[in-house]
């Protein structure tokens, strides 16, 4: 196969990569706030808040993401909520992402010393101001590298949206392969695109979490 041919296949796949990135953006838009909310929920002293939060986290982590996608896409219509494949995938993956990252947020919030909250109280700040202006900025530094790691994993997980016929990268590669019969080339190229996005970001996340750990012990 010639270079021109590879270039053409690559360009053919790009729209699929675009959809995968859109899916990633959408699931992060749902999953990040939800993850933070769940973290606050599972740390709550109030059982009425804590138990549902724990349930969502346990289900989100214990059930395969693919089953969550099917549940949203094929199950929710029975409750009167019918979603297109794309938002359904974003919601399913977003909930799964939130379940996993709630633990990251919780650890980040807990890592901020109690003395910081007490200092805020002593200065007459309200609970909301303390959380937003004192605790969160410090916790953010700790949660960003692991969140980046999870975001990469869920970028990869957008390939599950194939099962809902979302025209993302894998679907695009597969559909093109059924017409040009270059299955191995198309699918390997798709694999390389996933790896090409995922590996550098994973290395970056691991590197920054190491550097972060160092700067904290120093």
């Amino acid at each position: 196969m010639t270079n021109d041919n590879w270039t053409k296949l690559f360009l053919d796949l790009l729209p699929g990569l675009g959809v995968s990135l859109q899916l990633t953006a959408g699931l992060l838009a749902i999953g990040l706030p939800l993850g933070l909310l769940l973290a606050v929920g599972i740390s709550s002293k109030d059982k009425i808040v804590r138990y549902p939060a724990v349930a969502v986290v346990e289900v989100g982590r214990g059930v395969p993401a693919l089953v969550l996608l099917y549940l949203v896409y094929f199950g929710l219509p029975q409750t009167g909520i019918t979603l297109d494949a794309m938002p359904a995938a974003m919601i399913g993956l977003g909930v799964s992402f939130a379940a996993y990252t709630s633990e990251v947020f919780r650890a980040g919030i807990q890592s901020v010393p109690q003395g910081q909250t007490e200092a805020g109280k002593a200065l007459g700040m309200s609970g909301g101001v303390i959380f937003g202006k004192v605790v969160m900025p410090q916790a953010l530094k700790i949660v960003v590298p692991p969140l980046l790691g999870w975001a990469v994993i869920y970028f990869q997980a957008t390939s599950l949206a194939f099962a809902l016929a979302v025209p993302e990268l894998l679907s695009r590669a597969y559909v093109l392969a059924t017409t040009n019969f270059q299955y191995l080339n198309m699918l390997s190229l798709a694999a390389m695109l996933y790896a090409g996005v995922a590996i550098p970001l994973t290395v970056l996340a691991e590197h920054s979490s190491r550097r972060d750990a160092k700067s904290r012990t120093a």
Partner: peptide, 23 residues
Amino acid sequence: IQITRGVPPIVWLFVIYFGLSQF
């Protein structure tokens, strides 16, 4: 390790199931 973790599981299965059938 990087490559096995860098490519999503479902894509691995497609490469092996559909891709290798080319050979």
